[in-house]
Amino acid sequence: MAGTDEDAVAAADDALYVLTALLLTPAKFPSVLGDDYPEACAALGLAPLADGYGLVIGQDGTGARWTVVIDDVSLVAVAIASWDCGMEYDLSPDERTVVAALPGWPLAVAVAAPGVPAPHDPDPADGPLLAPPDTSTWGSAQRRLGADEIALQWAMWREQIDDADFPSPNGTSTGSDRAVDSGTTEGAATGVATTDDAASDGDTPPRGTPAAVATDRDASQNAPTGDGDPKDGASGALAQGTPSKGNSGIRRVLAEARAYVDSPPPLGRVRSSFASGDARTLRADGPGWSLVARTDDIAFVLLDDKPGEVLPVGRGPELPGLLEALDKMAVRPN
């Protein structure tokens, strides 16, 4: 009988108390883990399968953190959709669908399972521990989180931009001579890793006032070298008194995004998702940069070397065609 009791205790310790779940597919993955799908998979030691994975995050009976990887993507998608609608859903993957059980969590999770010890890392003997990327200072992870936030809260960010503030091709404002106020976004360097699929603690990614305005024509020409006058175009509104650096960064981003059209990047670097009306929300990432755009509107650029700043890019004559081409090649949710 004692043996039976021990088996019951062992089974309880091995049980997974599910806290949340994430999709890891070419069209939808925790972008904090990488610029593209293969990079995000590599962060977890997984091969980038075409159909992707579901990540089930929870605690065992001792309170240890575990991430269970399954190949039943549809099951996880249904669970997430149910939870988003406020419905209960018992996510219990079949053992035959389990690809790996990884110690630790790849993202910070604010909630904990009731009735078990507080979340803690498993014994190191269980293998290399997963841990959330460092977002205590601005870098690639924070930049991608900022882009996530803009895509999720597009209307809030867009309403801060007056189309009259975008410079015309001759370098003057198309409306008033006032450029968008410069500044860094509060909390941009102190956020905690999170996605819209997983709860997390800490501050949110960048929220604040966009730091500069430019049209795609400005970005394709030589950067202005004015003294910060808003009439000098994008240069006048950049923070920290570096008028040409931001515009140069925008030129580089648009050039690399155009190159994606001719030479497709790794899977997931360009993603397209639903937006209002007939528009699509586009997300593109590359070395040191992220771009978020609406196919019927403007774009926002974030750069690793411009901490906390959000650089809007007006449509101009070239951006619409670029966004259309990127949307045609982008991966989309099923």
Rank of each mutant, 00 (worst) to 15 (best):
E186S: 13
E6W: 14
A12E: 02
T209A: 10
P103S: 13
I70C: 09
G233V: 05
E159L: 00
V98C: 04
K328Q: 05
W157S: 01
L311C: 14
D327K: 04
T215V: 08
W138R: 00
T62Q: 08
V18T: 14
G236S: 08
E159N: 03
P93C: 00
S82N: 06
P132D: 03
V69F: 01
S140D: 06
D36S: 09
G127H: 09
G171Y: 10
S140G: 00
V111L: 05
G236F: 13
V213F: 15
A199S: 11
A299C: 04
M87L: 12
D196Y: 02
A214D: 08
V99K: 02
D51S: 07
S235C: 12
T194R: 07
E88T: 14
R217I: 05
A112G: 06
P224H: 06
A11Y: 11
D123P: 03
N247C: 15
V111G: 11
A275M: 15
G171D: 03
T184S: 11
A199M: 15
V18R: 10
P206N: 01
A50L: 07
L46N: 08
P230D: 06
F300L: 02
L322D: 01
P103A: 13
R258D: 02
L326I: 03
S82D: 13
E39H: 10
G175D: 09
Q153P: 05
P48L: 03
D229V: 02
E39Y: 08
V68L: 13
V18M: 09
G58S: 12
A212Y: 03
A110C: 08
S244K: 10
A110Q: 14
R294F: 00
V253A: 11
R207Y: 09
A330I: 12
V69I: 06
A214W: 15
W105K: 14
V32C: 12
V32N: 01
T174H: 13
P26D: 06
D126C: 14
T195V: 02
T20N: 00
V292L: 04
D51M: 13
A293I: 02
K245C: 07
R144N: 00
P133K: 04
